[in-house]
Write a protein that binds this DNA or RNA. Structure first.
Length: 154
DNA sequence: GCCAACGTTGGC
DNA sequence: GCCAACGTTGGC
């Protein structure tokens, strides 16, 4: 059973184009328990991901990725020199987890957040539309994922 | 275990 | 760059 997700990234640090050229990447640096739990416990290889550009002009969904490795410890939390270093995470008892994601497609045109909002009725309950929603890894309903993907192909 | 203070996120 | 919303921290 495939699940669907939305993952946020600031394109100034990592964009859909970066993923396209890398083909695959590890999603390190998530330091939020809810997002960690999704990555550690729920995400499976093959799950489909909406790649969302946040703090961008405009913000919106830039393309699709898929999970290529299920949750495993975020080793950047152990690296003192890494900006995501967290002394509370131990090798023998990791605090933070990540997944790997692989590039699937970049939409011909980014779907702005504004467009998602304009279709609020169709996308009812989609987390990214909720005011104050800051979660960087969010579950998305299949029908919402498919609507966004169809919209992106147009 | 409450909650004020603080830091971060992210749209605008 | 502002600031609302929210998660986390730490004093009590």
């Amino acid at each position: 059973m495939i699940s669907y997700w939305l993952m946020k990234s600031e394109p100034s640090s990592y964009s859909i184009d970066d993923l396209k050229s890398d083909k695959n990447t590890y999603w390190n640096g998530v330091r939020n328990f809810q997002a960690r739990n999704f990555m550690r416990d729920t995400m499976r290889v093959g799950d489909q991901v909406l790649f969302y550009h946040s703090s961008a002009e405009p913000p919106g969904v830039a393309g699709v990725a898929q999970v290529s490795r299920a949750g495993y410890p975020d080793f950047t939390a152990w690296d003192k020199k890494d900006s995501h270093y967290d002394p509370k995470s131990k090798q023998e008892n990791p605090l933070w987890y990540m997944v790997d994601i692989a590039f699937v497609e970049k939409f011909p045109r980014l779907i702005p957040l504004e467009t998602l909002k304009a279709n609020e009725k169709l996308l009812k309950g989609m987390p990214v539309l909720k005011k104050g929603m800051r979660l960087s890894v969010q579950p998305v309903e299949k029908k919402h994922f498919e609507w966004v993907r169809r919209c992106g192909k147009k």
